[in-house]
Design a binder for these strands. Structure first.
Lengths: 129, 129
DNA sequence: CATTCGCTTTACGTTTACGTAAACTTACCC
DNA sequence: GGGTAAGTTTACGTAAACGTAAAGCGAATG
């Protein structure tokens, strides 16, 4: 019962619809850290999860640098000093505030889109006559 | 009873915490279209609303081009042909789907941030001992 | 054994969203 | 009317996030 537990770079590229160039770019900027067999990159399921997180962050408008910051903060939790941990707390809170702002933005925009849609429907009705 | 109904470029820059350069940049790319008194730009409340929308779009990770597209679509509603209107419908739906995806992303990320926060709190408790 | 296929590094090019500097009007204040 | 504060255009610079091309390695396939 051998589960598929590793991935090649092009498998991941296909699955998430991005280029291998992008994936290597993320690695260059330390957002990924796959194992190697010789020169070839081998991605674990953990690496794949990590990639998912990157893409999620991107969809939310975070820069790669900000995403890296979040990863680093997360890693720092293990064995951080009190000062580190308090800073981490602050950062997390900061993110949460930003996300709440985004929630609001989304709600507003959804209202406007609904609005536009109605206007659209009305206009179509007009044309029907 | 004279209400404050127009704004200078630096007033808006101050209010929304951006540079005048940015505001002029948006105009260059047809996201704004303020009146002029001589050379000087004069922004109406409508212009201010428009600027708000731009910033909201940006916070949601839209590019300026995408934001312009939304504006154009909105404007096209007045006096669009049926074909235009149907295309607009499709675009709006597309946007709504993307926003729902973002909602999900936000929810997931919020869970993870809560998670991280708890982990943080636990780590602090450990240090307390 | 030659080739093809996928992966690799290296490196220069491109787009987006502004920053920054220069050189110039316009408006207002004393 | 001289200065200064705020506005203007023009133009070159820059960081982020890749695209794309070149040139090479390693394995497997006919």
């Amino acid at each position: 019962m051998t589960e598929l537990t590793t991935f090649s770079i092009s498998e991941l590229a296909a699955e998430f619809d991005l280029t291998t160039r992008s994936i290597r770019f993320y690695e260059d900027h330390q957002l990924l850290n796959p194992a190697r067999r010789g020169q070839t990159r081998i991605y674990s399921r953990q690496d794949r999860v990590q990639l998912k997180l990157i893409l999620r962050g991107k969809r939310l408008g975070f820069s790669l640098l900000e995403i890296k910051e979040l990863f680093d903060l997360w890693d720092a939790t293990k064995g951080g000093s009190e000062k580190q941990l308090r800073l981490l707390q602050a950062k997390i809170t900061e993110r949460k505030v930003a996300l709440e702002q985004q929630q609001q933005d989304i709600n507003m925009l959804q209202l406007e889109l609904d609005n536009a849609q109605n206007r659209c429907i009305e206009a179509l009705k007009e044309l029907q006559k």
